[in-house]
Design a protein around this nucleic acid. Structure first.
Lengths: 150, 150
DNA sequence: TGGTTTTACGGAAAGCGTAAATATG
DNA sequence: CATATTTACGCTTTCCGTAAAACCA
């Protein structure tokens, strides 16, 4: 199964017509036809009845359609989330500390850090052998200060 | 974007290890690597931090992961629905009537039909020129009787 | 006959595996 | 040196468009 096929299914439901559905999806009409057939074969059920001048969704088709809409909606929201993260010029900070020290250090550092730099994404790792601190920045201010340790 | 990529993302979250994630998905490990990179490029955001001996999900990655799980769950349920429809040996009946007669006929026929044959999928069409009735059956009894008209 | 969908087939693109390279401890 | 991930490259599969055929009003 493929997200593209689900788009064809939704477009076909909206248009009740293969030609217009293909137009909306920006592909040729045989593509919609073959891909929908493939989807039906994969699911093992007829999703639509091809009645001349009308496309009727079967019961199975209506269930699949509802799920397809939800799926595509989730995909759109995933893209929206990602775009938001991308735009925000997030600074990311990865911080590794000794496991033995973590319980003492982190409760002091983390809340102050989040309060001071809400836009900075904080990644914590417990490491056995090293104490290191790396800052990536794709943006303006690199908040190095205030993080040197106790 | 592709459903397969989302499966790789989820597997990687479960395993926190590219090699094991690939194994679970039944593909080679470079495939998981390249496909995940492709997904990140498409979304424009880093989803995971590749720390040696550990895979850490970024904030963006965690959001995407949650949506990926929901999407794949919907897909699984879609397959389940379809399988149920396929197994049930559904009989489908397509019935066309004159638009002028429909209001008089259907209120009598449809409820009795559904009551009598709950497993039969009923498809109604309003046609201008014909009165036709077709029954497909992939199963045992073809319920032709009781449908000849008013 | 006109409009719609399906089938057939060739070309373009994407997915994948093997092997080599890179990074890390 | 051993483990884990990425890059490179070729092969296979899938997707898609054009053209022709089938279907129906």
């Amino acid at each position: 199964m493929n997200l593209r096929e689900l788009e064809y299914l939704v477009a076909l439901a909206d248009q009740r017509n293969f030609r217009r559905a293909a137009e909306i999806c920006g592909v040729s009409q045989p593509t919609v036809s073959t891909q929908l057939k493939k989807l039906e074969e994969e699911l093992g059920v007829a999703l639509v009845e091809r009645v001349p001048r009308n496309v009727i969704f079967t019961a199975a088709g209506q269930e699949a359609l509802a799920r397809a809409r939800r799926i595509l909606d989730e995909v759109a929201q995933m893209r929206g989330d990602a775009a938001r993260h991308g735009e925000s010029g997030t600074t990311r900070l990865r911080l590794g500390v000794f496991p033995t020290l973590a319980p003492y250090l982190l409760p002091h550092i983390v809340p102050r850090f989040i309060a001071g730099f809400p836009d900075v994404e904080l990644l914590l790792t417990e490491e056995k052998a090293i104490f290191w601190c790396v800052v990536w920045s794709r943006a303006r201010s690199m908040p190095r200060f205030g993080l040197a340790g106790p």
